[in-house]
Write a protein that binds this DNA or RNA. Structure first.
Lengths: 243, 243
DNA sequence: CGATGCTTTGAATATTTTCAATATTTGTGG
DNA sequence: CCACAAATATTGAAAATATTCAAAGCATCG
């Protein structure tokens, strides 16, 4: 069995040991490489016949708009991540996706995905697993917003992003490059942008972490994890369950 | 093709037109009917080899504990709902499940589910769809906690529960029976129990909704939906995508 | 009927937002 | 490479929102 080097194959392969047919079917999903500029939505809440994507380069975010004009960012996507899957399964999208930076992504049409599941049925189980992993992240995000204060939320968020980025070979224990503005952080963490600024100042003054000029630098990652109550098990790959 | 009357078959059938084999395979998942008393967890955060369940009677909730001893309820389950799916896919559970009332549920072992996927591969796609629908609810919950105030959150929550209950034939436009205490509501909505009480008083005084002695009564459901910014599309079934 | 859990209310405090103003950084065209 | 405009970050003060602590009133169920 050959090793595929697409991020998607690597991710799914950690759950299901993929056969050659399955690998080929996966690779076929990567025709239709697209580029998008930052800030212009590529999946639209309420629209039908939207595609899903696998992100290859750059950062994006999924969010929902509220009647008052505010929004809540549900999730950030980094290279190797899926997005827009629900737009396929529900025919019409319940959320928006906006590139945070300029991005490159493979577009996956509804029929592509359903055909792939027909050709290689175990892929459906693998995608179910990947989607559940994403759901676990949303759940942890929910817990953060529901029960952690500003500092704890920020700490947890930065640690989670760091762990996710390290899984795809970006950043290290000292920190990571981060293209998010304080407005984006606010929309994600359920805070005001002003408060995000104050929270970052507090964490900086306490010698825990610095976020300046697009770079997150950890000064005391253990104290930060302690503050956040951070437990990365929900991100861990354990080795394939399906053989 | 016969019509199966299990809630699971009805739910998955709204996404995939199920064949006889698929229906039989589904029904086989309903051996192992279990009863549980209220308040005693049946899925445990951090434990491995946990089962998933399909709820037949009663209400349950999924939640996560935090280091400080507080908890965040992620989701309530009502008859027909799945829970503990992630405990199977990840071998170890990242959350707890507690019966709110006494419940009856069918236990589904990891091997049961994976065998069923092998025997009837389209079931995996159907379960992916159902899991995505659950994820959409968690996302809406996240949005609520992140960007709505106490009154809006409560309004949204009550409307969502009403819509979900009506899908399984419980309650109507005038209201529904609800076994949740203000403590449970607080843990779900990311508020304190005291504040939940004040929020309910405000909604009652404003003539929108009354929640007393286990019964939710809508007085002005349109105004309530307006206040909450409630849009039920994320709960809608559209008719099967897979034939 | 008595114990227990749930609901209700008040008052003081903590957290977060909003509004407003001022720095700083970044990107762009000349 | 500089100057300028736009975007982003920072700070203060007042107001809104929600929490905590404490106490009392109601249900409910054996």
């Amino acid at each position: 069995m050959q090793i595929a080097d697409s991020p998607l194959a690597r991710k799914l392969g950690s759950f299901v040991l993929l056969t050659d047919t399955e690998l080929e079917t996966l690779e076929a999903l990567h025709r239709r490489r697209r580029r998008f500029v930052a800030g212009k939505d590529l999946v639209h809440q309420g629209q039908s016949d939207q595609s899903a994507y696998v992100l290859a380069k750059g950062w994006a975010c999924s969010y929902k708009m509220l009647p008052g004009g505010t929004r809540q960012i549900v999730d950030f996507q980094i290279p190797g991540d899926f997005f827009g899957l629900r737009s396929i399964l529900f025919r019409t999208s319940d959320h928006n996706v906006e590139p945070v930076t300029k991005i490159e992504a493979s577009e996956i049409l509804a029929t592509d995905l359903l055909d792939a599941f027909q050709r290689a049925p175990r892929l459906a189980t693998a995608v179910l697993w990947a989607a559940s992993r994403d759901e676990a992240m949303v759940v942890e995000h929910l817990v953060s917003i529901g029960r952690r204060n500003g500092e704890e939320r920020m700490a947890h968020f930065l640690l989670e992003m760091s762990a996710r980025l390290m899984l795809v070979g970006q950043g290290d224990r000292t920190g990571f490059d981060c293209p998010l503005s304080q407005y984006l952080l606010a929309d994600a963490l359920g805070l005001s942008a002003v408060h995000v600024n104050r929270v970052l100042r507090t964490l900086r003054h306490d010698g825990l972490v610095t976020f300046q000029r697009g770079r997150v630098t950890f000064h005391n990652i253990d104290a930060l994890a302690e503050l956040a109550g951070f437990d990365a098990t929900y991100l861990d790959h354990d080795g394939p369950l399906l053989r």
